[in-house]
């Protein structure tokens, strides 16, 4: 018996990291030689040095909790309302046929541009951010729920019927669990839309957690701090996307 080992190729990752370090060194050299103005681009070393200061002085933990709370509020609304509306649409073929194209058009609408309207209706507070995040992610959540329920295998339903399950049991014991992986894709997509809008709106209306921090530091002309805050938002977004992607893969059959 032979044992084969498949070695993981680390060269692409090494190249990616080496490129990042090279860009950092190049920018540092260009600023120190006066080619780039330090008033436009801060020294990468000063950005790294600013990390502990921003974390300590700008209450990153509290801001993270605030943004997390907004994201959680929007997520709960999205999952409850989006899944509920998706189930209703699936069960009524007529309503689905009448509204599915509108929902798809709603998904393509640049809803965040209506943020001044949300400010007037809800005020400059967390509710505006939660509502915009929720509405931005609603369409994919509904569409993916309908899709998930529509593609359940007929044989699974036939097995349920052969056991004389009631319509209610058939739905909750077979239909819905079989649709969960696709519904989770909808949750992932809608949470991404919601998070983008939450960070963006916090920055635009200068309210809330991490998005507001960027605005505040930029208005104080704290360039290294602004870069750190932007880096922090990117880091949080990327971690969030990775976690939710892993969860989705875990939920998928054979994932």
């Amino acid at each position: 018996m032979t044992t084969s080992f498949r070695r993981r190729d680390y060269r692409p990752a090494a190249l990616a990291w080496a490129s990042l370090i090279l860009v950092f060194c190049l920018v540092e050299a260009l600023i120190r030689t006066g080619v780039l103005s330090v008033y436009v681009v801060p020294l990468p070393s000063s950005i790294v040095a600013a990390i502990p200061r921003v974390v300590a002085e700008e209450s990153i933990g509290r801001r993270l909790l605030l943004t997390g709370g907004e994201a959680l509020g929007a997520s709960v609304l999205l999952i409850v309302v989006g899944t509920g509306l998706g189930i209703l649409l699936y069960r009524s073929r007529l309503v689905r046929a009448a509204t599915e194209n509108w929902i798809a058009a709603f998904a393509a609408a640049p809803l965040i541009l209506a943020y001044p309207l949300f400010l007037v209706i809800f005020g400059r507070n967390a509710l505006t951010i939660v509502m915009l995040g929720f509405l931005a992610g609603l369409a994919p959540m509904i569409l993916k729920t309908v899709e998930g329920l529509s593609i359940v295998r007929r044989s699974l339903l036939n097995v349920g019927r052969s056991f004389n399950l009631s319509e209610w049991d058939l739905f909750w014991k077979i239909h819905f669990p079989a649709a969960v992986p696709t519904i989770f894709t909808g949750i992932r997509l809608s949470l991404i839309f919601a998070l983008i809008n939450i960070f963006g709106l916090e920055f635009l209306i200068n309210f809330g957690g991490l998005g507001q921090l960027i605005n505040e530091l930029a208005e104080r002309y704290d360039l290294p701090g602004t870069y750190v805050a932007i880096g922090f938002v990117i880091l949080v977004s990327v971690c969030f996307f990775i976690v939710i992607e892993r969860l989705e893969r875990w939920l998928r059959p054979g994932g």
Binding site: G200, F203, S237, V238
Partner: peptide, 12 residues
Amino acid sequence: YLGPTPKIIFFP
């Protein structure tokens, strides 16, 4: 991973 991050934060 950078694609879905909100680009408006780069505005400053």
